[in-house]
């Protein structure tokens, strides 16, 4: 299956967080690589799976099923984005 990138999940993530996370910077809990969410690999299937472009570890899983949203973010050690203080 061809993967997409983090741009593709901007809408789904914006619906969960308070804004657009494409330019937010994520740190991979697996290898420590750091970069914008727009650059991660995205696999679509049962929900969406975001993977680290450097080490391929799962960063985030997002699924909607049975009337609820399930979000697993264990692969992201740190997420930073600009916001008013």
């Amino acid at each position: 299956m061809t993967h997409l990138d983090g741009n593709a999940v901007a809408g789904d993530l914006a619906a969960i967080f308070t804004g657009d996370l494409s330019a937010a910077v994520a740190t991979c809990a697996g290898c420590g690589a750091t970069g914008p969410v727009a650059n991660v690999m995205v696999y679509e299937g049962m929900g969406e799976v975001l993977r680290c472009p450097d080490c391929d570890e799962v960063l985030l899983r997002l699924m909607r099923a049975h009337g609820e949203t399930r979000l697993d973010m264990r692969g992201i050690k740190l997420l930073r984005w600009g916001s008013a203080s």
């Binding site: 741009n7 901007a10 657009d20 494409s22 330019a23 969410v37 727009a38």
Partner: peptide
């Protein structure tokens, strides 16, 4: 439709 989205590209 919903959006627009994207803050990097």
């Amino acid at each position: 439709v919903r959006g627009p989205f994207g803050g990097w590209f």
